[in-house]
Amino acid sequence: MNDPELAVTANSRARSRLLDLDLKLYGPLLALVALFILGAIINPAFLSPANLANILTRSAFIGIIAVGATFVITSGGLDLSVGSMAAFIAGVMIIVMNALVGTLGAGWATIFVGIAVSVALGVSAGLINGLVTTRGKIEAFIVTLGTMGIYRSLVTYLADGGTLSLNFSVRSVYRPVYYDSVLGIPIPVLVFAVVAVIGYVILNRTRFGRHCFAIGSNENVARYSAIHVDNLKTLAYVVQGLCVSIATIIYVPRLGSASSSTGVLWELEAIAAVIIGGTVLKGGYGRIGGTVIGAIILTMIGNILNLTDAISNYLNGTVQGVIIIVAVLLQRGSWRRNR
C-alpha cells in the first residue's frame, strides 16, 4: 500500500476526489498546499527558489529527528530528550574535533572522527533511553524527561555555562556540509530526503516497522505474536538516537558552536511534526510521509510570518500551536457525521 502523500502529489486523480477525500490521509498535504498558497499571496518573495530552499534546509533538522520520533511514537513510546541530546552530541563533537586538530590536522580526518563520535553517542543515548524504559519498566515520558535534563545540564557543564566553538579552520572545511548544494539541492535537504525515504521503507515494508505498529497497537498482542517487545522498543529509541546524531552532524557546520540553548524545544517541534503528519500519539499508526510534511509545515509557518507584517513574528508559536490543534481535530474527525 502506498502512502498517498508520498505518491506523486496532487495529480489529477487525487484532485477529482478532493471532495470526498479522506481527511485523515490527505489532511497534512492539504494544509501544506494551503500554507503554500497563503505564502505566495502574502509575499511574492516566498516563491523564490532561494526562499523555498531555505525553508527545506531549515526543516531538515527537525524533520530528520521527527523521522526517528515517528518510530518511537508508532511503537507506543515517546522521547523528550532529543533536543538536549542534540545539544550534548554537538558539544562533544566540537570538543573532540578541537582536541584532534593538533594530531589529525584541521581536515576531513578530524571531521570524520567527529561524525563517528556523533553516531556512537546518538546510538548509545537511544540505547539508554530504550533499555531504561523497557528493562526498568518505567514510562518513557519519565525516563526521557530525566535524560533530557541530564543532557542539557551536561552540555552546559561542558561549555562551562558559555558556548563551545569549533576550531575556525576545521569549521571552514566542514562548512559546506550545511551550506553547499549538490545538483542544486542543499545538502541538508538531500540528507533529509534520504533519511525520510529509508525511514519510510523501514517503517512500512520491513518486519521491524510492522512490529512497531503492532507493539504500539497492543503490546499484549505483540507478545502473543512472538515479537520480542522489549528489544523492538529499544531498537526504536536507537533509531531515534541515530536520527538525532545525523541531524547534529549537519547542524554543527551551520553555526560551528554549541551552548546550553542549542536544540531547545526541538523535542516538542519534532513531536508536533509527527502528530501533524497523522501519526497517532498513543501509538499503533505512523506515517513517515506525514512527518516530513509536518516538519515542513512548522518551518513554513515561521517563514511566512517573517515575510509579512500582518502578524508579529513573535506569534510564531501561537500560529504553530493553532495549526497543531486544528490538524489533530481534523484527523480525529469525530465531528464528521459518518463515523
Partner: peptide, 9 residues
C-alpha cells in the same frame, strides 16, 4: 481481543 488481534489494524 486483548492478546490475539490488533483490532485497529
Amino acid at each position: 481481543k486483548d492478546k490475539g488481534l490488533l483490532l485497529n489494524m
